[in-house]
């Protein structure tokens, strides 16, 4: 075969294999995103009939929006703790549920079920639990910290969000970790046992290094979803108490639609996206360094 036909063949395969994905992705995500970036340079508003070019003034406004940066920092904290706790619990669950334990299928299903409910509804259910169930338990036990709702104190409201996030995602990540555990070749495990590695030592020296790909995926999932948390934020705290739990996505939304500063909101969304992309991509690159070929 000559090189020309090989090139054509390659292009043909490219179109067949990647074409449909790329078209859908571009039409739905890429083009709107580019259009969205364009809009940040205008004073566009969905409810105005006309708009014009305004240069960088929206971006300037973002840098003077003190609250945005405060909420940004708060969001970083929320994402950090969510990532840690989700992964620790998910890993623990996966470890326990791949060990020799009865009713594995039932338990796995049980831990996964929180994912069956969508974000908004989930938020409303938990709001009720924090406000009515926890407080009833607190009254019954006479335990002061539980007597008032978690959602009425700025710091505790963030903790409440982390609790619900962990509750929701731990089962989700558990599935990926289980796949990782099961994917460790039998020979490697046996070999390590012959070498005398058992229990905790085996976990640290054999299992964890081999599960780096699972860690990459799981961390990435929590980090990316954590930054974008909106539904849960809206339904659970709606920014309360007094606006202290408005995470970045909610702040952007309120800027764009409640304060009618669409251009600024859009510019904040773009800046936010860029930052998150940097964080997430560096996380992937960093963890990839620890990857070992099985």
């Amino acid at each position: 075969m000559n090189s020309k036909s090989k090139l054509l063949n390659n292009i043909g395969n490219f179109v067949i294999f990647i074409g449909p994905s790329l078209i859908a992705f571009s039409c739905v995500l890429l083009i709107p995103l580019i259009y969205g970036v364009y809009l940040t340079f205008t004073n566009y508003s969905p409810i105005k009939l006309t708009y014009e070019f305004v240069g960088f003034s929206n971006f300037q406004a973002v840098f003077t929006d003190k609250e945005f940066w405060q909420q940004f920092v708060k969001t970083l904290g929320y994402v950090f703790y969510s990532t840690i706790f989700c992964n620790v619990i998910a890993f623990l669950l996966a470890y326990l549920l791949t060990s020799n334990i009865k009713a594995r299928g039932f338990l796995r299903a049980g831990f996964f079920t929180p994912n069956l409910i969508g974000g908004i509804v989930l938020g409303y259910i938990w709001k009720f639990i924090f406000a009515n169930v926890f407080t009833k338990v607190g009254d019954a036990l006479g335990y002061q910290p539980l007597m008032t709702s978690f959602l009425t104190h700025p710091d505790r409201a963030i903790i409440a969000m982390i609790i619900v996030t962990v509750w929701q995602y731990a089962g989700y990540l558990m599935i990926i970790y289980i796949a990782g555990f099961v994917g460790i070749p039998q020979e490697v495990q046996e070999a390590s046992e012959i070498d005398g590695a058992t229990g905790f030592k085996k976990l640290c020296s054999i299992t964890i290094p081999l599960m780096v790909p699972s860690f990459i995926i799981c961390f990435f999932i929590v980090i990316s979803r954590g930054f974008m948390t909106y539904d849960l934020n809206l339904a659970l705290t709606n920014g309360q108490p007094y606006g202290s739990t408005r995470l970045a996505a909610m702040h952007i939304y309120q800027k764009a639609f409640q304060a009618n500063e669409y251009g600024i909101g859009q510019a904040e969304a773009i800046i936010f996206f860029a930052t998150v992309a940097i964080v997430a991509v560096s996380q992937v690159l960093l963890t990839k360094k620890f990857e070992v070929e099985a």
Binding site: I18, I31, L33, Y35, P46, Y230, Y253, Q266, A277
Partner: peptide, 23 residues
């Protein structure tokens, strides 16, 4: 392409919502 796809997972929906519906 792969890098773009991975990065796209972090696009906040609010950033493309209005452009998407308007297109």
């Amino acid at each position: 392409i792969f890098a773009t796809l991975v990065a796209s997972m972090i696009v906040p929906f609010q950033a493309i919502m209005i452009p998407l519906v308007s297109i």
